[in-house]
Simulated scan of single mutants.
Amino acid sequence: MHTAFTILIDGLTYASWLFIVALGLTLVFGVLKILNIAHGSFYALGAYAAASFVGWGASMKWAPGLSLVCMLLAAIAVAVVLAPLTERGLLRFFYGRDEVLLVLVTYAMFLILEDVTKLVWGANPYYVSEPYGLFGNIDIGVQSWVGYDFALVALAVIVGGIVWWGLNRTRQGKIMLAVIHNAEIASSMGVNVSRVYMLAFTVGIFLAALGGAFTAPMISVQPGVSVGVIIVSFAVVIIGGLGSIEGAAIGALIVGLARSFAVHVAPVAELFSIYIVMAVVLMFRPEGLFQRTQTRKI
């Protein structure tokens, strides 16, 4: 019973940040129909920017609690700076082209951003220790967990709720849903599709950077961190169904629990446990668990 509870808590912690990142990936695909290989690079940039912002705040003798604000500002800065450069300066010229070409373009962007991070921050790892101790430890039975892990779970719930509310309860969100359903019809009815693309891509980058920023206190921020993130994020959206918020949540939970189970029960299977789960799901649901029915075009 104790082991099962530990697996559950660790799985939820891993799934929380993964859901935030995968939510941005699935939102960009739902609106722009782009499999963004560079999504992991935005995660890494969020982590690096958070490390820089928190370090700057510490040098200014700010209160430790403001480090959370620094991490949020880091994610916003990454989205504000990179979204216009990427979407307006590059991706917009490839809309309507073959999907494989878009994948290659985002892969090239991934390679460029990897080198940019090395040029700006170097090859040495960064550590963001201040925020991790803000919430103390939480004792449950004989086991003790870091309070920051539970705060990260709460953040994932809040972010998921805000995105769902924004899409389903606001005017701009309903316009975005109309573009997701059929961009051509939405454009013919006066919707500025280009502006919707820009908004969706900005939110997607922000979510990736937010996941990176708030994961930075739990990891060593170093070159190559983006590679593992994009692979696992793709596993999440493939399991849940591309373009589905509910699928991203369930997919992240499945991946988190599968990894946690492997770590505690069969550590040698950790590296491929996620892919086993993905293969099993795709055997029975090739379109993913929550893939919406696609309109057939004649």
Rank of each mutant, 00 (worst) to 15 (best):
A4Q: 11
T6N: 14
I7T: 10
I9F: 12
D10K: 10
W17F: 15
L18D: 07
A22Q: 05
L23W: 03
T26F: 03
L27R: 06
L27A: 01
G30I: 06
V31P: 00
I34V: 15
A38K: 03
L45Y: 07
L45T: 08
G46L: 03
A51I: 09
A51L: 06
F53Y: 14
G55P: 06
S59G: 14
M60D: 02
K61I: 01
A63M: 10
C70Q: 12
A75C: 04
V80F: 13
V80L: 15
V81M: 12
L85D: 04
L85K: 05
T86V: 11
E87V: 03
L90C: 01
R92Q: 04
F93I: 01
Y95M: 02
Y95A: 02
D98R: 03
L102Q: 14
A108S: 12
M109K: 00
L119V: 06
G122Q: 09
N124R: 14
Y126L: 14
F135R: 07
F135D: 07
G136Q: 12
D139N: 10
G141L: 07
S144I: 13
S144T: 15
W145L: 11
G147W: 11
L152K: 12
L152Y: 10
A154V: 15
A156Q: 11
W164E: 08
N168E: 13
N168D: 08
Q172V: 11
G173Y: 10
K174A: 00
M176V: 13
A178H: 04
V179C: 04
V179N: 02
I180W: 01
M189W: 01
G190K: 11
V193T: 11
M198Y: 11
M198T: 11
A200G: 15
T202V: 04
T202C: 13
A208I: 09
A208V: 10
V221P: 05
Q222M: 13
P223D: 05
V225G: 00
S226Y: 00
I230H: 03
V237H: 06
V237I: 11
L242E: 04
V255Y: 07
G256W: 08
G256H: 08
L257H: 10
A258G: 12
A258L: 11
R259V: 08
A262S: 13
A262H: 13
F272P: 00
V281C: 06
P286H: 09
Q294V: 15
T295H: 11
